[in-house]
Computed example of a mutant assay.
Amino acid sequence: MTANAIVAEIRRGIAAGEYAYGARLPSVRDLADQHGVSQQTAAAAYAVLSALGLTRTAAGSGTTVAAGPAADAHLGTYAPPELAAAKAWQASSPNSEVSEETYLVRQATAPAEWADWGIPEGAAVVERHRIRRVDGVPVQHKLTVLPYEIAARMPAGHEGIPPMLAPVGAPPVSPPAGTRMADWMGWDVNRTQCQITAEPMDSAAAEALGAPDGGPGFRVVSVAKAADGETLYVTVTTAPLHHRVTMEIIG
């Protein structure tokens, strides 16, 4: 058996749920014995699985599964021009249990690379980090970045902490029924630019997803702009290549 055949077999097992997220896989020696191959071939198979972001190898911990069954991490359903009727992120299977958690909110200084998003280097920003799960397995990391003056805005009639500055653990703040968050916040979004790439995951996304640092992933960057070109907010959604990232636009 070749290394690629071993990789294919383990990939099928992960996709089918036979190897649970976080489960420890056999040692290189045991894997070699199991398939009747050399330890070099077994090690090569694990190297490929790690490069694909499906496993993680750490000293003293061996090789563990870093992905769950393949999931369709749906970004949302949109029906222009009635964007208020859009459906938020969801799993493709109605039998799947989905959850979303904001685990980090912080003020920061924009690095130089964010200038491509229209956020100048050194600008005061607010970062909000979320993790999305399907059946308990992390499938998406979502970073939202807002210039501080945008994040600090208060919706009409709202009292207390500005919604975008609410700390982790605070009760969720939602706009009135039928109102988009952007409209409620008075952001006046004129257009949104999206970039979808496949590239190594950054450290924050990899850690949140339990994947190897720098492992391959989908990266969806959405930059919301006002009519005058001002950047209102940016979302960066990261998902392992093992999953799909989809959206539906109606009309």
Score class of each variant (00 low, 15 high):
Gly60Lys: 02
Gly60Gln: 04
Gly60Thr: 03
Ser61Pro: 00
Gly62Ile: 08
Gly62Leu: 10
Thr63Asn: 02
Thr64Leu: 12
Thr64Trp: 06
Thr64Cys: 12
Val65Lys: 01
Ala66Glu: 03
Ala66Gln: 05
Ala67Asn: 05
Ala67Asp: 09
Gly68Met: 08
Gly68Pro: 13
Gly68Gln: 05
Pro69His: 04
Pro69Glu: 12
Pro69Gly: 07
Pro69Trp: 05
Ala70Pro: 03
Ala71Val: 13
Ala71His: 10
Asp72Pro: 07
Asp72Gly: 11
Ala73Met: 05
His74Lys: 03
Leu75Lys: 01
Leu75Ser: 04
Gly76Lys: 06
Thr77Phe: 00
Tyr78Ala: 01
Tyr78Thr: 00
Ala79Lys: 13
Ala79Met: 11
Pro80Thr: 11
Pro80Asp: 06
Glu82Asn: 13
Glu82His: 14
Leu83Asn: 06
Leu83Gln: 03
Ala84Leu: 00
Ala85Tyr: 10
Ala86Pro: 05
Ala86Asn: 15
Ala86Arg: 15
Ala86His: 12
Lys87Val: 14
Trp89Val: 11
Trp89Asp: 04
Trp89Gly: 03
Gln90Cys: 02
Gln90Phe: 11
Gln90Met: 06
Gln90Asp: 04
Ala91Gly: 15
Ser92Asp: 15
Ser92Ala: 15
Pro94His: 05
Pro94Phe: 04
Asn95Cys: 00
Glu97Met: 10
Glu97Lys: 14
Glu97Gln: 13
Glu97Asn: 13
Glu97Tyr: 09
Glu97Pro: 01
Val98His: 12
Ser99Lys: 02
Ser99Cys: 01
Glu100Gly: 12
Glu101Ile: 04
Glu101His: 11
Thr102Cys: 11
Thr102Tyr: 00
Tyr103Glu: 05
Tyr103Met: 02
Leu104Cys: 10
Leu104Phe: 03
Val105Ile: 14
Val105Pro: 01
Val105Leu: 11
Arg106Ile: 06
Gln107Phe: 08
Gln107Tyr: 07
Ala108Asp: 15
Ala108Leu: 12
Thr109Leu: 11
Ala110Val: 07
Ala110Gln: 10
Ala110Arg: 03
Pro111Lys: 11
Pro111Ser: 09
Ala112Gln: 15
Glu113Met: 05
Glu113His: 11
Glu113Phe: 09
Trp114Glu: 07
Trp114Pro: 03
Trp114Met: 14
Ala115Gln: 13
Ala115Gly: 10
Ala115His: 00
Ala115Arg: 12
Ala115Lys: 07
Ala115Cys: 00
Asp116Phe: 05
Asp116Gln: 14
Trp117Arg: 07
Gly118Phe: 06
Gly118Trp: 07
Gly118Ile: 04
Ile119Glu: 01
Ile119Val: 15
Ile119Ser: 03
Ile119Gln: 04
Ile119Leu: 12
Pro120Trp: 09
Pro120His: 06
Glu121Phe: 12
Glu121Asn: 13
Gly122Ser: 07
Gly122Ala: 09
Gly122Thr: 10
Gly122Phe: 09
Ala123Gly: 04
Ala123Met: 07
Ala124Ile: 00
Ala124Pro: 02
Ala124Gly: 00
Ala124Asp: 13
Val125Ser: 02
